[in-house]
């Protein structure tokens, strides 16, 4: 067995004892199939049990283990040490979020943003259960399915330079979620949601940098969702000029 190791730098912050975040280095036995998340688990089990990080599913489904890997927002479980070895790996909590402890960030603002876009079906009228399920063609589903694949990991918010500058911006994941419901044939809540979209903090806070879509681990392409919503918002603006509500 090859006994080579890889250096992992972790930005530590324990609010009860550290005045400000600092970097701590760990040496972890290297193997090509080790993910960054597994290397963190190795550190926690064998080297330093005080290191805090969020994780759950280990397979890019739960969206818990988002972190900055060498400055790039990534899921710890979806990125492997072999992509960095023999260079060291630097881990930091997700950018643009307040640090709670070590690699754990405070996601409250992100969750509030998701809740703010009315992310639920608003049907035209309540449908009786006896009338059976809503019917939808494959084409109607295709219109929104991609935007429904979000796992709420927050990588796009860590990537977004506009969210970094202005925390009032609704942001990529929430706007993609909004697009997901607006584009659903079962939904009739577009008029309500367009009010959110039309604001400066809505789609118009975006300058189409597109990094959100680059870092998205589920290929949701929030940047595309936002640009499509900009077109919708422009139409809504024109209509609003002739038919103010």
């Amino acid at each position: 067995m090859n006994a080579s190791t890889i250096t992992i730098d972790i930005l530590r912050y324990r609010p009860e004892m550290d005045e400000k975040p600092f970097t701590q280095s760990y040496e972890v036995p290297y193997s090509a199939d080790l993910s960054v998340l597994e290397s963190l688990q190795y550190i926690k089990d064998h080297l330093d049990s005080t290191v805090s990080f969020r994780w759950s599913c280990r397979m890019a489904i739960c969206g818990s283990c988002g972190m900055m890997v060498n400055g790039v927002p990534k899921l710890g479980c979806k990125v492997f040490l072999r992509d960095y070895y023999p260079k060291k790996v630097t881990l930091a909590p997700l950018a643009n979020f307040p640090i709670e402890r070590d690699l754990v960030v405070v996601m409250d603002d992100f969750i509030d943003k998701l809740e703010s876009v009315k992310p639920y079906l608003i049907p035209e009228k309540e449908k009786d259960l006896a009338t059976g399920p809503h019917q939808q063609t494959p084409l109607q589903m295709e219109k929104f399915k991609q935007f429904s694949m979000c796992i709420n990991c927050g990588l796009c918010y860590a990537a977004c330079p506009q969210y970094a500058l202005d925390k009032k911006f609704t942001g990529p994941a929430a706007l993609a979620l909004l697009a997901r419901y607006n584009r659903d044939s079962r939904d009739n809540g577009e008029a309500e949601r367009m009010k959110i979209v039309n604001q400066e903090e809505g789609v118009w806070g975006c300058t189409f940098v597109g990094y959100c879509s680059v870092v998205c681990p589920k290929d949701v392409d929030p940047a595309a969702a936002i640009q499509l919503l900009k077109v919708d918002s422009s139409k809504d603006y024109l209509i609003g000029m002739f038919k103010p509500d």
């Binding site: 009010k195 959110i196 039309n198 604001q199 400066e200 118009w204 900009k230 918002s233 603006y237 024109l238």
Partner: peptide, 8 residues
């Protein structure tokens, strides 16, 4: 909600 004039 305040509508933005950005569309123009």
């Amino acid at each position: 909600y305040t509508r933005s004039h950005e569309p123009i």
